[in-house]
Design a protein around this nucleic acid. Structure first.
Lengths: 359, 359
DNA sequence: CTGAAAGCGCTTACAG
DNA sequence: CTGAAAGCGCTTACAG
C-alpha cells in the first residue's frame, strides 16, 4: 500500500473550503465569479479568501482545466509592399507562442491587405466568429478598428494594440512607438549630420497622406520640426509628400526637388520607403546627400552598408510582437498586471551595429 | 456519483505504459534516466517513447513534482563605485523571477565586491553549498570564475555567463556585449562628430588595466582603433589609462592631457566613468570637447540632457539579467534550446531617446 | 527490478 | 444553491 506523505502548504482551495465549511466546487464558483452561490455563502467564502490572501496556483489550474487559450493576431500581410516590415512582429509573435505553448495557449494569425479595408474587416469578422480569448491587432484602419474593438469590448474579449494606437479605445495595452518622439530624435540626428546652410528635405511616402492626428508619417515630421524649433536650428526644412508609391514616381519627384534645391544636404524619409530613396540616389550617382530613415528591413541593410543611408530609426518590431502576445498571456493566464502603454525604445541603427540589432 | 468524461489525448505517460506494458513508475524511470530498470525494459520503453514522439507535459510535471527549482545569481554589488550599473541586470533578474515564480522557481542573488576577489570566492562557495539547480554569474575575476564553474561542471550544475564571457568554459550560454564591436561602433560615432584635424582622446579608467585579451576596456579601445584604421580616418588618437578612480585624480589627469593637447576635440571613455570625465569638463567650463561614453546610469542622464555627453553606448543591462534567468528557465524547466551566445544589441543613447531606453 | 496507488491544486460533470 | 468524486499528466513513497 502506498502512503504518500508530504508537507502540505495548506493555503489552496482545499483550505478555503475547510475554513469556510463549504465544498471545493463552491470555492471554485466564488473564485471565478460564477453564479449559483447564495449571497451568504459568497460572503463567507470571499472573507476567507481575503483572510488567507489566497493566490491561485496557476499550474494546478492549467492542468485541471482542459481549457485551451486561443489568441488571435490581426496584422498586415508580410510582403514587398511594406518592405517586409511585418516579418519582425510576426517572428516575435512566433517566439512568444512557442514559449507559452506548454501553458496551453494557441496563437492564430490573421492577415489583411494594407491597401484594402475590406480585407481588414473580413479578417476581423473571422476572428469574432472564432471565439478567441484575447486579440492582438495593428489597428491600421481607424474606423474599422474601432468598430471591431467595440464588439470585442461587448464580448469582453481583451485586445492589445500593436505598432499604432487608438488612444480612446479601451485596449488592454498599447505596445509600439511614440512616433513624435522618434521624429524628435530624428531632428537631433539630422543636426549632427547637416552642415551649416544645408537644407533638409523631409519626404513622406504613402498611398494616403491625410492630415489627421492619426497620420503616422506626419507625426514624425512634426517631431523633426519641433526639434528644430526648440533648438533653434537654422537649417531650412523642405518637405514633399509622395502619394504614388511606384519607384519611378518616387525617383522622379526626388530628383525634381533635388535639382530645384541644390542646397539640400540631407533627406529624412519618414518610413521604410527610405530604401527607394536610397536606391534613387545611388542610381543617379548623388552622393553629397545624406539619408536618415526608418526601419531595418532586409533591403535597407545594403544601403546602410555602403554608406548611402547613415541612420535608421527602429522600434523593435520583433519585440513589439513578442510583448504583444506576452501581454495577453500575463493578463489572461498569469494574472499579472500589464502596463497600459508600452512605448518601444527608439533605436538608432547604423552600419556598425545593425548586425546586433534584434528583437 | 460523478462521471467525468473527457476526450483523452492518449499520448502521455499513461499511453506509454500501456503500449510498453509496464507501470507508470517504470516509464518515469526511463524518462528521467533513473536506475532500476532492466536493459530489456529500458529498450522497450525507449522505443515506445520514440514511436510516439512523446513530449512531456510540463504542467503535469511541475504540479506532480514538489521540486522547487533554485537559481543562484552572482553579480557585483550595486553601488556608487560601479555607477549603479548592476541595478540594470538586477532589475531584469527580478522581472524574470516574478514571471516564473508560478512555475516553482526561486531565485537568490549573491553579491560580491568588484575590488575584492575574496568576496567573489566567498559568495561562490555559498552558492556551491546552497544546492542550486542553475547559476547565473558575471565572471568578473577570471581565475576564480574558472575554478568555480569547473566545480559546477563537476556537479552538473548548468551556469550562464552574463555581461562578460570566458569563451573556453562550458557555459550553457553567454549573454552580454560584444565589446570589440561596441568600440567599433564608437569609432563610427566619433567619426560623425570629430572635425578635421581634431584629435581623439581615448580614456580608460579602472583600478586595474592589465593588457590581456580579457580586459574589457582595452577590447573597446581596440574596436575604435580598428574602425579608424579600416576606414582610414585621419584624426589622431591619443590615449590615457587612469588606474586611480578618485574624482580628483581623474580630473587632474584629464586636464593635464587637454592642456598639453589643445587639438583634442572629443573624448571617448570606455566605461561608465564617462560621468566623472563629463563632470570635470563641466566644472572647468570646457565646452569645445565632445564626449562619448558607455552605459546609461542615473548620473549620466544629466550630462546627456545638458549636452555635455553626446552619445552613450549601452547594452541593455536589464535585458541581460532578464534573459539570463529565462535562459536557465528555458533550459531546465521548459526543455527549450538556448543559444550558446547571445550578443546584446549595441544601442546608441542620446538626449532625445534616453527616456525610452529600457530593458 | 517492478508496480499499484496516492497525491500535486485545481476544475468539471453530475446528482441532489 | 451545494457537494462528493473523478480527473488533468505527471511524480513519489512504498511494497514486493
Amino acid at each position: 500500500m502506498a502512503k504518500a506523505k508530504r508537507s502540505k502548504p495548506r493555503n489552496g482551495v482545499k483550505e478555503i473550503a475547510r475554513r469556510a465549511n463549504v465544498a471545493l466546487a463552491t470555492v471554485d464558483r466564488v473564485i471565478h465569479g460564477r453564479p449559483g452561490v447564495s449571497k451568504k455563502t459568497l460572503e463567507k467564502v470571499k472573507k476567507v479568501i481575503e483572510e488567507m490572501n489566497y493566490q491561485p496556483n496557476i499550474i494546478g489550474r492549467r492542468l485541471a482545466s482542459m481549457k485551451e487559450y486561443h489568441f488571435a493576431v490581426l496584422i498586415p500581410e508580410i510582403n514587398e509592399e511594406s518592405g517586409f516590415f511585418w516579418e519582425g512582429p510576426a517572428s516575435g509573435i512566433k517566439l512568444a507562442s512557442e514559449e507559452i505553448k506548454s501553458m496551453g495557449v494557441e496563437v492564430t494569425t490573421f492577415f489583411f491587405d494594407q491597401n484594402d479595408k475590406n480585407s481588414f474587416v473580413a479578417s476581423a469578422d473571422k476572428i469574432l466568429k472564432g471565439k478567441f480569448d484575447g486579440i492582438l491587432l495593428a489597428p491600421f484602419f481607424i474606423e474599422e478598428s474601432i468598430a471591431f474593438t467595440n464588439t470585442c469590448e461587448a464580448k469582453a474579449i481583451p485586445y492589445v494594440f500593436i505598432n499604432s494606437d487608438i488612444p480612446d479605445q479601451k485596449s488592454l495595452s498599447y505596445i509600439g512607438p511614440d512616433l513624435y518622439a522618434s521624429g524628435y530624435l530624428g531632428g537631433q540626428l539630422i543636426n549632427y549630420l547637416i552642415k551649416p546652410g544645408g537644407q533638409v528635405l523631409i519626404v513622406n511616402i504613402s498611398l494616403e497622406i491625410k492630415n489627421t492626428r492619426q497620420n503616422r508619417l506626419l507625426r514624425k515630421e512634426e517631431g523633426v520640426r519641433s526639434y528644430f524649433m526648440r533648438n533653434k536650428i537654422k537649417n531650412e526644412i523642405l518637405k514633399i509628400d509622395i502619394t504614388n508609391v511606384s519607384e519611378k514616381t518616387i525617383e522622379k519627384k526626388i530628383l525634381e526637388v533635388l535639382i530645384k534645391n541644390p542646397r539640400i544636404g540631407l533627406i529624412f524619409v519618414t518610413n521604410s520607403r527610405v530604401v527607394t530613396v536610397a536606391k534613387c540616389l545611388e542610381k543617379n550617382y548623388i552622393n553629397h546627400v545624406q539619408i536618415i530613415g526608418y526601419d531595418l528591413i532586409p533591403s535597407s541593410i545594403d544601403y546602410l552598408k555602403n554608406g548611402i543611408i547613415d541612420f535608421l530609426i527602429c522600434q523593435k518590431p520583433q519585440e513589439q510582437g513578442y510583448r504583444g502576445i506576452m501581454t495577453l498571456y500575463h493578463h489572461l493566464i498569469l494574472n499579472l498586471k500589464v502596463p497600459e502603454v508600452y512605448h518601444m525604445p527608439i533605436d538608432i541603427v547604423t552600419k556598425e551595429n545593425y548586425a546586433y540589432y534584434k528583437i
